[in-house]
Simulated assay, not measured.
Amino acid sequence: MPAQRKRQAVVHALFKQLDSISRQCGEQFPLYRLPRDRQWKLSRRGSWLGGFWAALWWRRAAFTELSEDLDQAVFWSRQLGAQLDEPSLNRSFVFWYGAALGGRLAQDEPARELALRAADALARDFRPDIGGWPLGPGMGGGDNGHATLNIDALAPTLALMHLQPDAHKRDMARSHLDLCLRTLRGADGAWASHARLDEHGQFQPGPAGDWARGQAWAMLGLAEAVGLYGGEYAAPAREACAYWLSRWGEAASRGTLVARNADPCAVAIASVALLRLWQCLPGMNDWRDLACQQIAALLSSEVQQGCFVGHYYRTGTEQEQLVESACATFFLVEALMTQDQVLAVQGGIAGW
């Protein structure tokens, strides 16, 4: 099947690119690479992106079944331990993707234990007064992080808190989900990416539906919620998908969604969310097909050579630029692999 072979060739190319990136890294994590540069910006601790670098190696090791790839995954996952006490909810990104994924894909017990330690650390930071977790000042959250509710890490936070049968952690996760729904969910399925506590202790959300990646993070979080809790969260999930379709779906399926507030990384994340919701909910075939169209549109000649410059990222105090990142690459790999899983269930769909 030509389309499937093309997807598999892209996955091979994206995984192969890890070798050249790794040669630049030493023991530091790659943060991002500007299109005009050959050298990656490196970080000793990895910030919130470090988990995705480890996750790519876990995925590659499962894909190739090579011991040297597994060794790389184990090495990078262990390096993440320095982030355990970082005051940021974005630790969920780091330890769900960079550690818990290794526990699942490779049955690596130290990686699973690291993820469990991260869940314990996050549980200690839960704020009963607000019923959830603020973003926190670490990993770029800044001075306002203690008073900010952010949508980005919703999916990995829910997943990390459900890693073991701990009723207290699971109650925290559901409380945080409901806080996000009350605070960040706007009209007609649009989502705000953040909200700030005012002087009266009330959250004031930012504009809803303006930022494609924020909407995509919300869709991914809702897909996780539907998978964990079932139909109770189906309605907001469907609304969020419908808003994506109306606002960005046509441009994304044509491959023209590149603007400051709408990057290709958002398309990959949204596509993963759409496909996972199709796996959980009946009647999502239109959104499954949209995800397939969006993924196909991402596969430019550059991407087919293993380079996905798809992530608007803050590269300076007042500057965001489109860069290559481990986060964007991971979600493109995840989208391609999830699409193949979905089509395998369906026995293949003509054209995909």
Rank of each mutant, 00 (worst) to 15 (best):
L299G: 00
D286G: 15
L322Q: 08
A273D: 09
Q321K: 12
A262K: 03
G249R: 09
V267S: 15
V226T: 03
R247T: 09
V258D: 14
A273Q: 10
P282T: 12
L322A: 06
Q304R: 12
L277N: 02
S300N: 02
I269V: 15
Q279K: 15
C241D: 03
Y312A: 05
V258R: 13
C292Y: 12
A297H: 05
P282C: 07
I295D: 02
S271D: 07
N261R: 14
W248N: 12
W287A: 09
T256I: 06
W244Q: 09
W248M: 12
N261I: 05
N285E: 15
R247D: 01
T329A: 09
A296Y: 09
Q294I: 05
L281M: 12
E250D: 11
E250W: 08
C307L: 15
L298N: 00
W244H: 13
I295V: 15
W278T: 07
D286I: 08
V258S: 09
F308R: 03
R288D: 00
G310M: 00
C292Q: 12
Y229T: 03
R288L: 03
A242Q: 14
A297K: 04
C265S: 15
C280N: 13
A234F: 05
A223G: 07
L281A: 12
A326I: 04
E302R: 13
R260N: 09
Q279A: 15
E302S: 09
A291F: 05
E239S: 14
A242S: 12
A242W: 08
V226S: 00
G255R: 11
N285A: 15
A242G: 08
G306K: 00
T315Q: 01
A234N: 04
L298V: 04
R260Q: 13
Q304V: 01
Q305S: 05
I295C: 06
S301M: 10
R254V: 03
L281Q: 13
C292V: 14
R247G: 04
A296G: 13
L298K: 00
Y229L: 02
F308Q: 00
E250G: 06
C280L: 13
A266K: 11
A273M: 11
E318F: 08
G310A: 00
A326M: 12
E232C: 03
C265W: 10
A266F: 11
W244K: 06
A270Q: 02
R238N: 05
V267E: 10
A237Q: 01
V226W: 03
S271I: 09
L277Y: 03
G306Y: 02
A251P: 10
G306P: 00
E324I: 04
A223C: 08
T315G: 01
Y233N: 04
L322V: 08
Q294V: 09
R314I: 00
I269N: 08
A252D: 10
L290M: 14
A235Q: 14
E239I: 04
A268D: 10
A291M: 06
C241R: 10
A234L: 07
G306S: 00
N261T: 13
Q319E: 07
M284C: 11
A259M: 03
V258F: 05
C307P: 00
Y233A: 04
A262C: 01
T315H: 03
A223I: 08
E239Y: 02
Y229G: 01
L290S: 13
A234K: 07
R314Y: 00
F308E: 04
R260E: 14
L228D: 06
Q321C: 09
